[in-house]
Amino acid sequence: MTIAATECLLRMYDERYGLEDYQGGVPRWCTGCGDNAILAAVQRLCRDENLRPEKMVFVSGIGCSSRFPHYMKSYGFHGIHGRALPIAEGIKMVRPDLHVFVNTGDGDCCSIGAAHWIHAIRYNMNMTVMLHDNQIYGLTKMQASPTSPKGLKSNTTPRGAYLDGLQPLTVTLGVQNVSFVAQAVDWIPELLYDILSAAFHHKGFSFVRILQRCPEWLPNLFDPWMKDPQRLLLLHGEGGLRISPALSKAYQNQQQHDPSDLNRARELASVIDPIPVGILYRNTDVPCYEDLRRTGQPRSHDFIKAGLEAEFDKFTVWPQESGSRTTAA
């Protein structure tokens, strides 16, 4: 049975997906919320990679950003606060065929889910993780988050946040088996797309911190950086981003950076101002936990039965044949 050439072409045509094929419900984020920019970049990425919607799972925790899966037309798992990463790991362990994405916020990832975050880096499972970092709790109405800058006034820190903010990039780069770390800002869509694309193509735990504006609670937080392009430091070069000439005109503060240089990556990660944007670190040699743990052996009934019977044998007391009890050596 052969398929007619035209039908074949038709099928190929059918399997080209457009942006609308990835658009789920209408986002309920506030106007001007940086999450919209991330959603747009991800949908573009899916289209450009022509990903089958049923083969993608977007996993999230709780918070504004964790609504993300609802706005994708794919499989989604809107879980519980802080636990997106272990849920995503479970999915990836049994389904290497699925593209797994994680959307998590600064409270979700760096506070209640911090233990999972540290260990997810170490497991290095193949997934793309977006940290939507707006430095505030939005959904619960403006409480300080672990990444809030010192002095930030919020409903739980009315006299200003007492502590310096946690730096997600330095934390991530400090963990054994880290394999991909990048930083993006929601207000430069072109770079956001390029960085997410590089993260998607990296096999391993790709961690992208995205500085994301919250127009509702902290409308002016990133103004100094948005108004002064010199306060962004664009990282580029071999193995990193290529900056377009148009973008180079606007953002002239640039630096060559080799993403295989972990020490330099750590130095850059600790810079708060200017904000480094680009790929800080990439190591393609770190093994993925799912590859270390899965044998790939098909689990046929006979295979399981043989394994089980072998275990039973270890514990079996066979009936004694009469009179032969003392004959065994």
Partner: peptide, 22 residues
């Protein structure tokens, strides 16, 4: 030996969430 995996998670919650994901 029968193609299974025991995942020792980082904590009890992580173990349960991992199981739920799988």
């Amino acid at each position: 030996k029968v193609g299974g995996v025991v995942h020792q998670a980082e904590d009890e919650i992580g173990a349960c969430a991992f199981a739920i994901g799988a």
